[in-house]
Design a protein around this nucleic acid. Structure first.
Length: 245
DNA sequence: AGTCCGTATTCTGTTACGTCA
DNA sequence: GTTGACGTAACAGAATACGGA
Protein backbone atom coordinates (compact mmCIF):
# COMPACT_ATOMS: atom_id res chain seq x y z
CA UNK A 1 0.00 0.00 0.00
CA UNK A 2 2.61 2.45 1.04
CA UNK A 3 5.32 2.93 -1.49
CA UNK A 4 8.86 3.25 -0.35
CA UNK A 5 10.23 6.51 -1.59
CA UNK A 6 13.52 8.18 -1.81
CA UNK A 7 14.30 9.73 1.46
CA UNK A 8 16.52 12.67 2.02
CA UNK A 9 17.13 13.30 5.68
CA UNK A 10 15.80 16.64 6.75
CA UNK A 11 18.29 19.27 7.78
CA UNK A 12 18.67 19.51 11.51
CA UNK A 13 16.11 21.68 13.17
CA UNK A 14 17.37 24.89 14.69
CA UNK A 15 18.37 24.41 18.28
CA UNK A 16 15.65 25.16 20.78
CA UNK A 17 15.85 28.54 22.42
CA UNK A 18 17.73 28.52 25.69
CA UNK A 19 15.51 28.42 28.74
CA UNK A 20 14.96 31.71 30.45
CA UNK A 21 17.03 32.36 33.58
CA UNK A 22 13.91 32.16 35.68
CA UNK A 23 13.03 28.79 34.24
CA UNK A 24 16.57 27.58 34.83
CA UNK A 25 16.41 28.52 38.49
CA UNK A 26 12.97 26.99 38.86
CA UNK A 27 14.03 23.72 37.32
CA UNK A 28 17.05 23.54 39.53
CA UNK A 29 14.98 24.01 42.64
CA UNK A 30 11.99 21.95 41.61
CA UNK A 31 12.86 19.29 39.03
CA UNK A 32 9.29 18.02 39.14
CA UNK A 33 8.23 21.32 37.58
CA UNK A 34 10.29 20.66 34.51
CA UNK A 35 8.20 20.30 31.39
CA UNK A 36 7.35 16.68 30.69
CA UNK A 37 9.82 15.13 28.29
CA UNK A 38 6.93 14.03 26.11
CA UNK A 39 6.34 17.47 24.68
CA UNK A 40 8.80 20.14 23.91
CA UNK A 41 7.32 23.55 24.16
CA UNK A 42 7.69 25.35 20.94
CA UNK A 43 7.98 28.99 21.74
CA UNK A 44 8.81 29.75 18.14
CA UNK A 45 5.49 28.63 16.80
CA UNK A 46 4.34 31.02 14.15
CA UNK A 47 1.40 30.76 11.88
CA UNK A 48 2.29 30.39 8.26
CA UNK A 49 1.74 33.45 6.15
CA UNK A 50 -1.20 33.72 3.80
CA UNK A 51 1.16 33.32 0.91
CA UNK A 52 2.58 30.11 2.32
CA UNK A 53 -0.83 28.68 3.12
CA UNK A 54 -2.09 29.62 -0.32
CA UNK A 55 0.67 27.70 -2.05
CA UNK A 56 0.36 24.75 0.29
CA UNK A 57 -3.38 24.63 -0.32
CA UNK A 58 -2.92 24.67 -4.06
CA UNK A 59 -0.38 21.86 -3.77
CA UNK A 60 -2.80 19.89 -1.61
CA UNK A 61 -5.55 20.30 -4.17
CA UNK A 62 -3.47 18.59 -6.83
CA UNK A 63 -2.00 15.90 -4.55
CA UNK A 64 -2.74 15.13 -0.93
CA UNK A 65 0.63 13.46 -0.43
CA UNK A 66 3.91 15.02 -1.40
CA UNK A 67 6.84 13.14 -2.84
CA UNK A 68 9.97 13.79 -0.80
CA UNK A 69 11.62 15.65 -3.67
CA UNK A 70 8.59 17.87 -4.12
CA UNK A 71 8.40 18.41 -0.39
CA UNK A 72 11.96 19.73 -0.33
CA UNK A 73 11.26 21.91 -3.33
CA UNK A 74 8.11 23.38 -1.78
CA UNK A 75 9.90 23.91 1.51
CA UNK A 76 12.65 25.78 -0.26
CA UNK A 77 10.13 27.91 -2.14
CA UNK A 78 8.30 28.83 1.05
CA UNK A 79 11.33 29.23 3.26
CA UNK A 80 10.19 26.41 5.53
CA UNK A 81 11.79 23.22 6.76
CA UNK A 82 10.74 20.13 4.78
CA UNK A 83 9.51 18.71 8.08
CA UNK A 84 7.18 21.68 8.46
CA UNK A 85 5.76 21.01 5.02
CA UNK A 86 5.33 17.33 5.87
CA UNK A 87 3.54 18.18 9.09
CA UNK A 88 1.35 20.70 7.34
CA UNK A 89 0.28 18.00 4.86
CA UNK A 90 -0.36 15.56 7.69
CA UNK A 91 -2.58 18.02 9.48
CA UNK A 92 -4.26 19.03 6.26
CA UNK A 93 -5.11 15.43 5.45
CA UNK A 94 -6.53 14.98 8.93
CA UNK A 95 -8.68 18.10 8.56
CA UNK A 96 -9.85 16.99 5.14
CA UNK A 97 -10.77 13.57 6.42
CA UNK A 98 -12.69 15.05 9.29
CA UNK A 99 -14.65 17.31 6.95
CA UNK A 100 -15.37 14.39 4.65
CA UNK A 101 -16.71 12.37 7.54
CA UNK A 102 -18.95 15.23 8.56
CA UNK A 103 -20.26 15.49 5.01
CA UNK A 104 -20.87 11.76 4.75
CA UNK A 105 -22.62 11.74 8.07
CA UNK A 106 -24.99 14.49 6.95
CA UNK A 107 -25.78 12.60 3.76
CA UNK A 108 -26.39 9.34 5.59
CA UNK A 109 -28.62 11.04 8.11
CA UNK A 110 -30.68 12.66 5.36
CA UNK A 111 -31.03 9.31 3.59
CA UNK A 112 -32.10 7.69 6.80
CA UNK A 113 -34.74 10.33 7.50
CA UNK A 114 -36.06 9.96 4.01
CA UNK A 115 -36.26 6.20 4.16
CA UNK A 116 -37.80 6.32 7.59
CA UNK A 117 -40.62 8.53 6.40
CA UNK A 118 -41.19 6.24 3.41
CA UNK A 119 -41.24 3.28 5.72
CA UNK A 120 -43.68 4.94 8.08
CA UNK A 121 -46.10 5.77 5.32
CA UNK A 122 -45.89 2.24 3.94
CA UNK A 123 -46.53 0.94 7.41
CA UNK A 124 -49.66 3.06 7.65
CA UNK A 125 -50.78 1.86 4.26
CA UNK A 126 -50.24 -1.73 5.28
CA UNK A 127 -52.28 -1.15 8.39
CA UNK A 128 -55.20 0.24 6.46
CA UNK A 129 -55.03 -2.66 4.02
CA UNK A 130 -55.13 -5.05 6.91
CA UNK A 131 -58.21 -3.32 8.23
CA UNK A 132 -59.85 -3.67 4.86
CA UNK A 133 -58.95 -7.33 4.68
CA UNK A 134 -60.34 -7.92 8.11
CA UNK A 135 -63.59 -6.25 7.14
CA UNK A 136 -63.81 -8.45 4.09
CA UNK A 137 -63.15 -11.42 6.21
CA UNK A 138 -65.89 -10.49 8.65
CA UNK A 139 -68.23 -9.90 5.77
CA UNK A 140 -67.65 -13.32 4.31
CA UNK A 141 -68.27 -15.01 7.61
CA UNK A 142 -71.64 -13.37 8.08
CA UNK A 143 -74.81 -15.27 7.13
CA UNK A 144 -75.96 -14.39 3.62
CA UNK A 145 -79.14 -12.67 4.76
CA UNK A 146 -77.27 -10.09 6.81
CA UNK A 147 -74.66 -9.02 4.31
CA UNK A 148 -76.82 -6.24 2.97
CA UNK A 149 -76.41 -4.45 6.27
CA UNK A 150 -72.70 -4.13 5.74
CA UNK A 151 -72.99 -1.92 2.75
CA UNK A 152 -71.21 0.80 4.62
CA UNK A 153 -67.91 -0.86 3.89
CA UNK A 154 -66.16 1.88 2.05
CA UNK A 155 -63.96 1.42 -0.96
CA UNK A 156 -64.26 -2.34 -1.19
CA UNK A 157 -67.59 -2.64 -2.92
CA UNK A 158 -67.63 -3.08 -6.65
CA UNK A 159 -70.41 -0.60 -6.29
CA UNK A 160 -73.72 0.24 -7.62
CA UNK A 161 -76.00 -2.75 -7.90
CA UNK A 162 -79.21 -2.50 -5.99
CA UNK A 163 -80.70 -5.66 -7.32
CA UNK A 164 -80.63 -7.35 -3.96
CA UNK A 165 -78.14 -9.95 -5.03
CA UNK A 166 -76.16 -9.88 -1.82
CA UNK A 167 -73.15 -11.83 -3.00
CA UNK A 168 -72.40 -9.76 -6.03
CA UNK A 169 -72.68 -6.45 -4.22
CA UNK A 170 -69.66 -7.11 -2.00
CA UNK A 171 -67.66 -9.40 -4.12
CA UNK A 172 -63.99 -8.54 -4.41
CA UNK A 173 -62.12 -10.52 -6.99
CA UNK A 174 -59.15 -12.29 -5.36
CA UNK A 175 -57.11 -11.79 -8.47
CA UNK A 176 -57.87 -8.09 -8.42
CA UNK A 177 -56.79 -7.82 -4.84
CA UNK A 178 -53.69 -9.82 -5.51
CA UNK A 179 -52.76 -7.78 -8.53
CA UNK A 180 -53.15 -4.66 -6.51
CA UNK A 181 -50.88 -5.86 -3.78
CA UNK A 182 -48.44 -7.41 -6.21
CA UNK A 183 -48.28 -4.11 -7.93
CA UNK A 184 -47.55 -2.34 -4.72
CA UNK A 185 -44.83 -4.76 -3.74
CA UNK A 186 -43.28 -4.62 -7.16
CA UNK A 187 -43.48 -0.88 -7.39
CA UNK A 188 -42.22 -0.04 -3.99
CA UNK A 189 -39.42 -2.51 -3.77
CA UNK A 190 -38.15 -2.20 -7.29
CA UNK A 191 -35.90 0.79 -7.10
CA UNK A 192 -32.68 1.05 -5.18
CA UNK A 193 -34.07 3.37 -2.59
CA UNK A 194 -36.79 0.98 -1.71
CA UNK A 195 -34.39 -1.92 -1.59
CA UNK A 196 -32.28 -0.03 0.87
CA UNK A 197 -35.33 0.83 2.79
CA UNK A 198 -36.15 -2.84 2.87
CA UNK A 199 -33.03 -3.48 4.90
CA UNK A 200 -34.15 -1.04 7.52
CA UNK A 201 -37.67 -2.31 7.43
CA UNK A 202 -36.63 -5.89 7.77
CA UNK A 203 -34.90 -5.14 10.99
CA UNK A 204 -38.16 -3.91 12.35
CA UNK A 205 -40.44 -6.23 10.45
CA UNK A 206 -38.66 -9.49 9.77
CA UNK A 207 -41.86 -11.06 8.47
CA UNK A 208 -41.61 -8.85 5.43
CA UNK A 209 -38.63 -10.87 4.37
CA UNK A 210 -40.95 -13.70 3.42
CA UNK A 211 -43.46 -11.71 1.50
CA UNK A 212 -41.63 -11.50 -1.78
CA UNK A 213 -40.29 -15.00 -1.54
CA UNK A 214 -43.65 -16.68 -1.25
CA UNK A 215 -45.58 -14.88 -3.91
CA UNK A 216 -45.51 -16.95 -7.05
CA UNK A 217 -48.86 -16.22 -8.51
CA UNK A 218 -50.98 -19.15 -7.45
CA UNK A 219 -53.77 -18.34 -5.04
CA UNK A 220 -52.54 -21.08 -2.78
CA UNK A 221 -49.17 -19.50 -2.42
CA UNK A 222 -50.65 -16.07 -2.30
CA UNK A 223 -52.54 -17.05 0.77
CA UNK A 224 -49.25 -17.86 2.41
CA UNK A 225 -48.21 -14.28 2.00
CA UNK A 226 -50.86 -13.27 4.43
CA UNK A 227 -50.12 -16.13 6.72
CA UNK A 228 -46.50 -15.09 6.83
CA UNK A 229 -46.63 -11.39 6.89
CA UNK A 230 -49.71 -9.40 6.15
CA UNK A 231 -51.82 -10.68 8.95
CA UNK A 232 -51.19 -10.96 12.61
CA UNK A 233 -50.69 -14.30 14.21
CA UNK A 234 -54.28 -14.19 15.36
CA UNK A 235 -55.52 -13.74 11.84
CA UNK A 236 -53.42 -16.48 10.36
CA UNK A 237 -55.20 -19.03 12.50
CA UNK A 238 -58.48 -18.58 10.69
CA UNK A 239 -58.90 -19.80 7.13
CA UNK A 240 -60.75 -16.81 5.84
CA UNK A 241 -58.99 -17.01 2.52
CA UNK A 242 -60.44 -20.42 1.73
CA UNK A 243 -63.11 -18.85 -0.43
CA UNK A 244 -60.43 -18.08 -3.04
CA UNK A 245 -59.78 -21.68 -3.88
C1' DA B 1 10.80 -19.28 1.46
C1' DG B 2 10.09 -17.52 5.94
C1' DT B 3 11.61 -14.54 9.70
C1' DC B 4 13.60 -10.74 12.00
C1' DC B 5 15.26 -6.10 12.20
C1' DG B 6 15.93 -1.35 10.86
C1' DT B 7 14.27 2.49 8.30
C1' DA B 8 10.90 5.53 6.24
C1' DT B 9 6.44 7.12 6.09
C1' DT B 10 1.60 7.79 7.39
C1' DC B 11 -2.20 7.99 10.64
C1' DT B 12 -4.33 9.22 14.93
C1' DG B 13 -4.59 11.55 19.04
C1' DT B 14 -2.75 15.18 21.89
C1' DT B 15 -0.49 19.44 23.35
C1' DA B 16 0.37 24.12 23.31
C1' DC B 17 0.52 28.51 21.06
C1' DG B 18 -1.77 32.44 18.50
C1' DT B 19 -5.84 34.91 17.53
C1' DC B 20 -10.21 36.83 18.19
C1' DA B 21 -14.56 38.05 20.31
C1' DG C 1 -6.13 43.26 30.81
C1' DT C 2 -8.41 38.73 31.15
C1' DT C 3 -10.74 34.77 29.58
C1' DG C 4 -12.60 31.10 26.86
C1' DA C 5 -13.24 29.12 22.30
C1' DC C 6 -11.22 27.90 18.26
C1' DG C 7 -7.71 26.95 14.64
C1' DT C 8 -3.53 24.94 13.82
C1' DA C 9 1.67 23.90 14.09
C1' DA C 10 4.15 20.50 16.22
C1' DC C 11 4.75 16.36 18.53
C1' DA C 12 4.40 11.22 20.21
C1' DG C 13 3.38 6.73 19.44
C1' DA C 14 1.37 3.05 16.79
C1' DA C 15 0.82 1.03 12.35
C1' DT C 16 2.42 -0.13 7.90
C1' DA C 17 5.50 -1.07 3.98
C1' DC C 18 9.77 -2.29 2.35
C1' DG C 19 14.65 -3.88 1.88
C1' DG C 20 18.40 -6.41 3.55
C1' DA C 21 20.64 -9.89 6.46
Amino acid sequence: MMERREYSPPPPLPPPPPPSPAAKIESLNCPELLPTPRKKKNKNKRRFSDEQVKLLESMFESETKLEPRKKVQVARELGLQPRQVAIWFQNRRARWKSKQMEKEYRILRANFENLKSQFDSLKKEKQSLLVQLQKLHDLLEQPHGRRKDSKSLAGTSTGGSDNGDTNRDYEVSPSCLREGLDHRIGMDLDDDKSKNMGCTMLEEEPNLLHMGEHVDGSPENWSRVDACGLLDQSCSDSHWWDFWS
